[in-house]
Amino acid sequence: MKFVFDLDGTICFHGKPLTSEMVQTLDFLMEKGHELIFASARPIRDLLPILPVHMQHFPMVGGNGGFVYRSGLEVSTVYLEASIADHILTLLKQHEAEYLIDCQWDYCYSGNPEHPIRTNLDPECRAKNILLEELTQIVKVVVLSSRNHQEMLEALRNLPVVTYMHGTENIIDISPEGVNKWTGLQALGVFSHDFIAFGNDANDIPMFEYASRSICVGQHEKLAQIASERVESQEKNVMDKIIEIAERLEEESSIFDESKVEVEDSATG
């Protein structure tokens, strides 16, 4: 079975790398023959530092579907259309917004240096913080603050883009139209109802809708409504749920195998 994990707030917390305990839990899944996929709002550049080295070549969906990688290689990258990107940049200026803009690898950051987003941004200095004038192709925009956030959000909703409002952080996430975590998983060859998903926020809704089982971590109301199960936003609870599901799958597989043997014996008898 494929297990798809969101990262921040799901299997890692406060922007810190996966703990050794969580890594051991994920390794347990692999030992049982399951495949791991990571699907995050972070671009691949910022997703890598929170993973252990032996997981950095696993299939990944970054930037809410904008970036898709397998074995450390790019599978696909989806950019905002130039005219749409220009319109967004104009809105950022009009609303005196602070922002993070991700290109294929580099980024443009204008916000407070103490903002939590900045502290998790390119911690290994893999990229460059370029000037707004140097931007070419844009994959994703995060609006950290603006003069009137609600007005900014309404203006963005009139554009052909996907927006997510992260209530706990009060930021607006902007991606190209038709791009989300589920489209990213499809680019990796994942089929509907062929995976189990763990997530904690609105950007996980698209992949939850196509998962065979989905586990909401924490209290997100809309996500919990479509999830199969919910666990508290505590690392131990999440690890326990992962192990529980793995053991349940093993039990189901064992029952299936026994039933298959009985059918075969009946046919040959």
Score class of each variant (00 low, 15 high):
Val4Ile: 08
Gly9Trp: 02
Phe13Ser: 02
His14Gln: 09
Gly15Leu: 02
Ser20Asp: 10
Met22Arg: 01
Met22His: 02
Leu26Tyr: 05
Asp27Met: 07
Glu31Cys: 06
Ala39Met: 04
Arg42Gly: 02
Leu47Glu: 12
Ile50Cys: 12
Pro52Gln: 01
Gln56Ile: 01
Gln56Arg: 15
His57Val: 06
Phe58Met: 08
Phe58Leu: 14
Pro59Glu: 07
Val61Leu: 04
Arg70Ala: 12
Val78His: 07
Glu81Ala: 12
Ile88Trp: 00
Leu89Cys: 04
Leu89Asn: 01
Thr90Leu: 04
Leu91Ile: 00
Leu100Gln: 06
Ile101Thr: 05
Cys103Ser: 13
Ser110Asn: 00
Glu114Val: 00
Pro116Gln: 04
Pro116Ile: 03
Ile117Lys: 03
Asn120Cys: 04
Asp122Trp: 00
Ala127Leu: 00
Leu131Met: 04
Leu131Gln: 11
Leu132Gly: 00
Thr136Asp: 14
Thr136Tyr: 05
Thr136Val: 10
Gln137Met: 10
Val139Asn: 09
Val141Lys: 08
Val143Tyr: 03
Ser145Asn: 15
Ser145Lys: 13
His149Thr: 12
Gln150Ile: 10
Gln150Asp: 14
Met152Asp: 06
Met152Thr: 11
Met152Leu: 08
Met152Arg: 07
Leu153Val: 03
Leu159Ser: 10
Thr163Val: 14
Tyr164His: 14
Tyr164Ser: 07
His166Asn: 12
Gly167Tyr: 13
Thr168Asn: 12
Glu169Leu: 14
Ser175Val: 13
Ser175Cys: 12
Pro176Trp: 08
Gly178His: 11
Lys181His: 06
Thr183Val: 09
Gly184Thr: 06
Leu185Lys: 10
His193Tyr: 14
Phe195Thr: 05
Ile196Met: 07
Ala197Lys: 10
Phe198Ala: 02
Phe198Trp: 08
Gly199Leu: 05
Asn200His: 02
Asn200Ile: 03
Asp201Pro: 09
Ala202Glu: 15
Asp204Thr: 05
Asp204Lys: 07
Ile205Tyr: 08
Phe208Arg: 09
Arg213Ala: 07
Ser214Arg: 01
Ser214Lys: 03
Ile215Asp: 05
Gly218Leu: 05
Gly218Lys: 09
Gly218Asp: 07
Lys222Ser: 12
Ala224Gln: 09
Ala224Trp: 02
Glu232Gln: 11
Ile242Lys: 03
Ile243Phe: 06
Glu244Lys: 10
Glu247Gly: 10
Glu247Leu: 13
Glu251Ala: 15
Asp257Ile: 14
Lys260His: 10
Lys260Met: 11
Val261Ala: 14
Glu262Lys: 14
Glu264Cys: 02
Asp265His: 15
Ser266Gln: 13
Ser266Ala: 15
Ser266Glu: 14
Thr268Ser: 15
Gly269Leu: 13
Gly269Asp: 13
